[in-house]
Design a protein around this nucleic acid. Structure first.
Lengths: 222, 222
DNA sequence: CTAATAGTGTCTCTGAGACACTATTTG
DNA sequence: CAAATAGTGTCTCAGAGACACTATTAG
């Protein structure tokens, strides 16, 4: 690999490498993405990579420091490499996706609604494109596994799960069909949620290692 | 995004950014990946990013210069960022995947067979992991579209397509079931291939914009 | 009781996979 | 003709989606 034959690195000018994170969340039957105010306008939280730092560590660091957010997993969405994408110079940015429960966000965090799979307000740089890709990645992951980002807690009712999936995929699902698609990947605890004016719903847990069948994907993407 | 508030870039040390390419091809009923000899052993073709260069341009450049290969599309597979992954220093590498027909490879190109979804010989650095991800990406793309990398030409018979898919997915498919899954995404030309000891097969073209249904994915991944 | 929500039995109809048949070529 | 490969008609059975019914709570 990688150039020449020696044991020294080339002395080409090197790019700055940044990390931007699209933190998605669900609230009021809609998807939202966390944003911060920057000198260049509304943007995703981002930072430059520190020496020797891992990309996911930088993603973790910037969420903590700029928004007080702790996310469990970061997913590489794509490297944005247009030479003129940042007018401060040559900056490559590794876009990351993450998802956190709305209730875990610190108060004061700015979120932008996602409508028609795009941010409802334009973001700076190429950050809107990053959000689009992050939503696609979220759907791909949610079509294979049950709420892998733990937007719901460890236990949840099937209604809660269905409503979450309806927001993530922007679709409606019949309750019986939805149930039969996802239940093979769930373990029912005996416990029930508190009744909300009707029969109490059973609480379910994700089965360890369970994956949704390909047929579930067909339903979800209608 | 991205640190501080000013209009200047930070003066942190910057990583070298490399591009490595896993060029996959199909030959003798098996998947292969193109490799090059490097001072550190068998490796994927790779190069450092030149100033202002796009990642895909670097991928194109390294294939041309190191192996004489021209690929049509490059897919970002993942950014490999372990700080100690390269003993020459701090080198991030953007792994790319590509696929080219075996017949388009220049003579003398070294290929390594892929067995059980891994290179049959260990590669240097983290390049074996890159190949694993490139194969996954290839399958994801081939499950959604008909031979999107044009490993077959513009026209092909259904037998050729089936054999290609059997290699890519490491599966066998019944000819009639396979046909019924893929034919909605194909246009039949009237023409036929030259007979090979039996009835000549019709030649098909990819329908523009056609995608394979989710159900096809279930068959392919058996 | 009624209202409200949770969960399931069951019917229908599509369509995937299997099998066998027909079609078209070479020798 | 036989042999070989291409392509299709059709049968069966699983299962997805729809509908309606039962179950369990609150008031």
């Amino acid at each position: 690999m990688t150039e020449g034959a020696g044991t020294t690195l080339t002395d080409y000018p090197r790019p700055s490498v940044a990390v931007d994170v699209a933190v998605l969340t669900v609230h009021e039957s809609a998807l939202f993405v966390v944003t911060v105010d920057s000198p260049r306008g509304l943007a995703l939280p981002g930072t430059f990579l520190h020496p020797g730092e891992r990309l996911s560590d930088a993603a973790h660091r910037v969420l903590q420091s700029k928004a007080g957010i702790t996310a469990l997993q970061f997913h590489q969405i794509g490297m944005f490499d247009a030479p003129d994408r940042d007018d401060r110079g040559w900056v490559l940015s590794m876009a990351h996706g993450a998802a956190v429960p709305y209730g875990s966000l610190p108060i004061g965090v700015k979120v932008v609604r996602i409508e028609d799979d795009r941010p409802s307000q334009p973001l700076s740089f190429d950050h809107s494109d990053m959000v689009v890709l992050a939503v696609e990645d979220l759907r791909r992951r949610y079509a294979s596994n049950i709420d892998p980002s733990l937007l719901l807690g460890e236990e949840f009712t099937l209604l809660e799960l269905k409503q979450l999936y309806e927001v993530v995929f922007g679709n409606r699902f019949p309750k019986d069909t939805f149930r039969r698609h996802v239940s093979p990947a769930l373990d029912g605890t005996g416990a029930t949620s508190v009744a909300a004016g009707g029969r109490p719903a059973e609480l379910y847990r994700r089965k360890v290692g369970a994956v949704l069948p390909e047929t579930a994907s067909a339903l979800l993407r209608s």
